[in-house]
Design a protein around this nucleic acid. Structure first.
Lengths: 141, 141
DNA sequence: TATGATAATAGTAATTATTACTAATAATGG
DNA sequence: CCATTATTAGTAATAATTACTATTATCATA
């Protein structure tokens, strides 16, 4: 609606998000930006993350549990969340994923504008740790 | 972990969720159950919805905005959320959706336990209303 | 059918995540 | 430089959810 004026804070937030690939929460971005702008307000971070997401410059990701996360990569891709450590990883778009929306829409009287695909399980690190602990358990009994 | 003992409240919550198909929030379930159990606590509703979801008897659905929603149907299916009115609808599993997980997992060193596919757009009702308002606009200019 | 162990509850308080409000500041076009 | 308007910091408020605790309900066993 209203004109969007430049602000250093927003620019710092945008760059921070593009730089990192850990899909941070609003608070994580806040903690990081504070190093450069000690007086920045958490509200400012929230407001700009929302605005940037609306403008399509970043992506907002809602999770099954815990706060929303944000992603500086706007190219279509999926996300994987580790049930153990909670980390979030990028996944390339699966084959045939784009057709899902079109296919499902055929028998639907409404309009489909988009889709979200999320995976969950154990990340490589947590899987390794778990396998390790199993082995040592067998040895220790 | 601990033994799960029967409780009327939990049973009422479970039945309430199976009966309805509007994917209610915890508070919606609470308001409904209160008619039968006027003293039930919102905390009890939250606790039991979480427990039932852990037990696999219901499904917890996180949304891009707004509170979590719950679904009494446990058979695999997807969800559609209307960006206009916020209603949530069930979608049958799309063809080839089951393979997504397997396919994506091939190039992944971790373990994939599950996936969630969500669609969004305009529900049939809201689409109809919008189309209607466009037409009347053209006539009224 | 009593009893004892323990899970579940109601009621309330606390926490977490997010949004709203406001006076002061910064950006931008003329 | 000035006027207009968006943005900010700081703070308060709200919404969603979880934690705590004394009391009550469930249930296996005597």
């Amino acid at each position: 609606m209203a004109v969007v004026k430049f602000s250093r804070q927003r620019e710092a937030i945008r760059k921070n998000l593009i730089r990192r690939c850990d899909h941070p929460t609003a608070d994580m971005v806040y903690q990081d930006i504070r190093k450069e702008y000690p007086n920045i307000s958490l509200g400012t971070v929230y407001r700009n993350l929302s605005l940037l997401a609306e403008l399509g410059e970043i992506q907002k990701i809602s999770t099954v549990s815990g706060p929303d996360r944000f992603d500086g990569m706007t190219a279509p891709h999926d996300h994987f969340t580790c049930s153990q450590c909670g980390c979030m990883l990028d996944f390339p778009l699966a084959d045939g994923e784009k057709q899902l929306q079109k296919q499902v829409g055929k028998a639907f009287a409404g309009r489909i504008d988009g889709q979200v695909v999320q995976f969950f399980g154990l990340c490589p690190d947590c899987l390794k740790k778990q396998e390790g602990s199993h082995i040592s358990n067998e040895n220790n009994i």
